[in-house]
């Protein structure tokens, strides 16, 4: 495998940090849901579950941004024909996806900083869980973007991809235990939900922040999903069609 690092960096930069200026309103829009839920959860639990909504809100935000990036790749494939343009170069599907993942992560940086500041004000942050949280953010970005990219690769019209993205967004950010303690649901349900990368990510965050018991099994699951979903995405990428 001969990755095109130059392209990955350029694609990441142009769809990431460089895009913040022109698309900052999306950053705010994507923060609306997790911050609203933070508010609602805080009110309903008289502040008790607020740290949960902080831990999960970060995951939720990363997931929303990743889904949006997968949607962008769909637009690149169907409307802009950018994917077709790139196929005829020596840049491969992995370069292309890694570029978008890097962009998605870069693009999330302002929101990450906001969450870290909130975490800090609630004394939830330590150097250890900061590092681990960043690792979780990276993994959940790769896993979610791959999963959603794979699903959207079967879509023939951008119109449809919006509906699917909206549905996946709710499933991944609200149903998964991002805004409630993962111990509230039966283990069996938790393991079903674990196919959504946001589930292991949120469980890990709750463990890291000392809110619930740490589950290293979830780290294994998140790592496995990252690899498996990336692998699937690589093969359904419609790179050179039949």
């Amino acid at each position: 495998m001969n990755l095109n690092i130059r392209y990955i960096l350029a694609h990441g930069w142009f769809t990431g940090l460089a895009a913040i200026k022109s698309s900052y309103y999306y950053i705010i829009a994507n923060l609306c849901l997790p911050l609203s839920l933070l508010f609602v959860v805080g009110v309903l639990s008289h502040g008790e579950l607020l740290p949960y909504a902080l831990a999960g809100g970060l995951v939720s935000m990363m997931v929303t941004n990743s889904i949006q990036s997968a949607g962008e790749l769909t637009q690149f494939r169907l409307d802009d024909r950018h994917q077709d343009l790139i196929i005829a170069t020596k840049t491969g599907p992995l370069d292309y996806m890694f570029g978008e993942m890097l962009g998605s992560f870069e693009w999330s940086i302002p929101s990450i900083l906001l969450y870290l500041a909130l975490d800090m004000s609630y004394h939830l942050l330590t150097p250890y869980n900061l590092v681990m949280t960043m690792a979780v953010c990276i993994l959940v970005t790769v896993a979610t973007l791959s999963l959603v990219f794979s699903i959207l690769s079967f879509v023939k019209y951008t119109r449809k991809s919006w509906a699917i993205s909206m549905m996946l967004s709710t499933l991944l950010t609200v149903i998964a235990p991002t805004f409630y303690p993962y111990t509230y649901i039966p283990k069996s349900v938790l393991f079903v939900l674990a196919i959504l990368p946001s589930t292991p990510a949120a469980v890990l965050e709750q463990g890291l922040f000392g809110l619930e018991p740490m589950s290293w099994l979830m780290l294994v699951i998140l790592l496995a999903e990252t690899v498996v979903y990336l692998f699937i995405a690589r093969y359904v990428a419609r790179w050179r069609e039949n």
Binding site: N4, R6, Y7, L9, A10, H11, F14, T15, A18, A19, S22, S23, F76, D79, D80, R81, H82, D84, L85, I86, A88, T89, K90, T91, D95
Partner: peptide, 28 residues
């Protein structure tokens, strides 16, 4: 080769210069 697809559109939030640079980086 370079192949410009039918109805291809530049990435709309990028400038002409950035669009070309991104493409050239794909060409390594």
């Amino acid at each position: 080769i370079v192949s410009i697809p039918q109805e291809s559109k530049p990435i709309n939030y990028l400038s002409p210069l950035d669009n070309v640079v991104l493409y050239l980086s794909a060409r390594r």
